[in-house]
């Protein structure tokens, strides 16, 4: 994606992607939840993108996806269809390493059960763990959220994350520039459709 990075650190890329996704039209609608819930529901939009690692050892983000316009306006769902592979003409297929499947939750809700399924499915196509020059990074799904009451300049207030390789579930929250992990749980699959969390600590 133009005008984004490239970044030397995945954390820098992640924390730059957060306000970018949330600043897209109707990416956060919590400010309308009480005053006009119907409008909030109708307009809420999810965006998604891949954060990936290039052969130049940089972190970049794909173009943003959302649902095709007629679908988004007609149906009651607010899903986001993220392609399995990124089309970056600078590189041959297979050269890119997929790190984070990013999306936003307009109402700030936790990861949905389908979100967990989605990244498990992606783990069939991409490496669960990527070697970089600065260590290993694991494939995960991330949902950004904002508690902002100002739709014009929404703040990146945190994100939910699930890492299928290690079954870790985390919640990170930002307060005045300081990041804090406020949840760290372990997810256990009981079968292909049922699972449970265990909270760490």
């Amino acid at each position: 994606m133009k005008n984004f990075g490239p970044f030397d650190s995945y954390t820098d890329a992640l924390l730059a992607a957060c306000p970018l996704l949330l600043s897209k039209p109707h990416a956060t609608v919590g400010h309308l939840r009480d005053s006009n819930p119907e409008l909030a529901h109708r307009t809420a939009t999810e965006y998604c993108a891949w954060l990936y690692y290039t052969p130049e050892h940089k972190y970049e983000m794909s173009m943003l996806s959302d649902r095709p316009k007629p679908d988004d306006l007609v149906t009651g769902k607010k899903s986001c269809l993220l392609p399995t592979f990124v089309d970056d003409s600078r590189y041959a297929p297979g050269e890119l390493k997929y790190i984070f499947a990013l999306h936003n939750h307009p109402f700030g809700t936790p990861l949905s059960s389908i979100d967990y399924h989605f990244i498990e499915e992606m783990a069939n196509h991409h490496d669960w763990e990527v070697e970089t020059t600065k260590g290993r990074i694991r494939l995960s799904i991330i949902a950004f959220f904002s508690h902002s009451k100002s739709p014009g300049a929404p703040t990146c207030d945190g994100f939910y994350q699930y890492i299928p390789a290690t079954r870790e579930v985390m919640m990170w929250v930002q307060t005045q520039g300081r990041w804090k992990k406020t949840k760290h749980e372990s997810l256990r699959w009981l079968d292909d459709r049922t699972y449970r969390f265990e909270r760490i600590q």
């Binding site: 992640l14 870790e168 992990k181 406020t182």
Partner: peptide, 21 residues
């Protein structure tokens, strides 16, 4: 459980468990 500030080995996006699970 207590929230943990970011620090070495515990940065946004990082994993702390060993792999394989």
């Amino acid at each position: 459980f207590e929230p943990i500030e970011e620090g070495p080995g515990n940065v946004p996006g990082s994993s702390m468990f060993p792999y394989p699970f």
